[in-house]
Design a protein around this nucleic acid. Structure first.
Lengths: 124, 124
DNA sequence: CAAATATTCAAACAACTATTTGATTATTGA
DNA sequence: TCAATAATCAAATAGTTGTTTGAATATTTG
């Protein structure tokens, strides 16, 4: 039980007791950081709505294939997307995990706030 | 209406038409990037549960006051938190905006996934 | 007013991240 | 097998980000 310099909120101790461990914060921040780049956010948004190959993702976003491939790899290492080869192409899609679904919902909720007129997904 | 190299998903065109503008993605990524650092994520989590001054935040997290102050400023510039001076201290709290509430819900949902045993907030 | 406390600022540094370019690997079809 | 296409890799670069340190500002109290 750590003692704080000041003591404004009498409830702070019980809050601190329920604070997740540092390691958990680092893990979560690592996943959240995938949302923190515009290119990657676009890729995630796209994969929330359709399964796509690298060339189409690159074309849809207006970036090089190398850039798309690079970011897809970061997303893959974070466990958010997965790619399956089909002939010459590799088709990427959102992973079926709780984390990926949470980020999907979060992205949609954000755009419902900032672009309320053109949301695709239903609210729940 | 942009033409993609391949055409696997016949629905892709209507998806692309509903894709928010690049500027919106950059704005959203900028807000989301606040979650992408462990220290800042801890601060946000703490402010989701209690209003705190800089010294207490620094002590609770085990970081220097300069570090806490620096990250609080980034959070403030992103519109997620606000600080009000009370005597010598500045009390920071989560902003009452849709964006801040969304991040609060997202953080809690993430920890419900990764630390299911010790969640504080109710599910909805 | 001077000392003490709380917070912020600013500069320097190290570490990390995104992009570019060209080469490399894998797969298909002629 | 050879050429074409798809995707990844690797190295170089530029830009961004987080931390450290010490100084500066603001507020309260003696």
């Amino acid at each position: 039980m750590k003692k704080l310099p000041h003591n404004h909120d009498s409830n702070i101790q019980s809050v601190l007791e329920r604070m997740p461990e540092s390691e958990k914060f680092l893990q979560a921040a690592s996943v959240f950081s995938q949302l923190g780049d515009g290119t990657r956010l676009k890729i995630l948004w796209l994969l929330c709505h359709s399964k796509e190959c690298v060339s189409d993702i690159a074309a849809a976003l207006g970036v090089s294939k190398a850039v798309a491939s690079h970011h897809l790899q970061l997303l893959r290492m974070s466990g958010l997307v997965n790619g399956t080869r089909s002939g010459q192409e590799i088709h990427y899609s959102l992973n079926d995990t709780e984390e990926a679904k949470l980020l999907h919902k979060t992205i949609e909720a954000m755009f419902r706030i900032t672009c309320p007129s053109q949301s695709i997904d239903p609210k729940n």
